[in-house]
Amino acid sequence: MFSTLAPILLQATWETVYMVAVSLSIATAFGLPLGVLLATSGRGELFEALWFQRVFGPIVNATRSVPFIILAVAIIPFTRFVVGTSIGTSAAIVPLTVAAIPFIARIIEGAIREVDSGLIEAAQAMGARPVQVVTKVLLPEALPGIIHGLTLTAVTLIGYSAMVGAVGAGGLGDLGIRYGYQRFRPDVMAAVVITLIVVVQAVQSFGDYLARKADKRNI
């Protein structure tokens, strides 16, 4: 029995890892600058731009208010436009990314706001330009918090990726629902659950390790 289960389990695990890794990377590429700007565009801040907060704050909140499964279905036209189809692993990356961007943006914003404002002042007194304050001070100092946040995002995305399984995306969630649930295979269900636990545990431990390495505040 194991010999027949192993290949499909491996395939499903790979699909999950692929969906999460790609959507996390793309979402970080968008969420990071968005988070930095949300954290620095307030009154009297580095890149003061109140319009930015007024426009993007509500958009971020709105995206985060929509339950993921609804979001995944609601943006199907957009998904089709981007990847040409709404079914499959690559198509699942679109809703995962769209859901992760505001999540990451808020996490980055929070991590940056944690940085002591005295450091910003010190950098400015040294003659740092605003962009340098971000690259040389805010991001390095916020790095442990950012790593923690991205780990949290990865774990959340693993959960979400199981949900997109329901709309034909493949991965561990899909395997659990189709084999474990619909075909009454408790062994498959158990294998899926155990694999998910192992994957989440591995991601969390790796994230914790990186964050600890980056954190020089308690040596």
Binding site: D116, G118, L119, A122, A125, M126, G127
Partner: peptide
């Protein structure tokens, strides 16, 4: 302004050192 500020050094009550460096 940043060029001018480089001619002045500033020392702070709470040091304001970067913990990551």
């Amino acid at each position: 302004l940043p060029l001018f500020r480089r001619q002045l050094g500033m020392v702070f009550q709470h040091f304001n050192l970067l913990s990551s460096r």
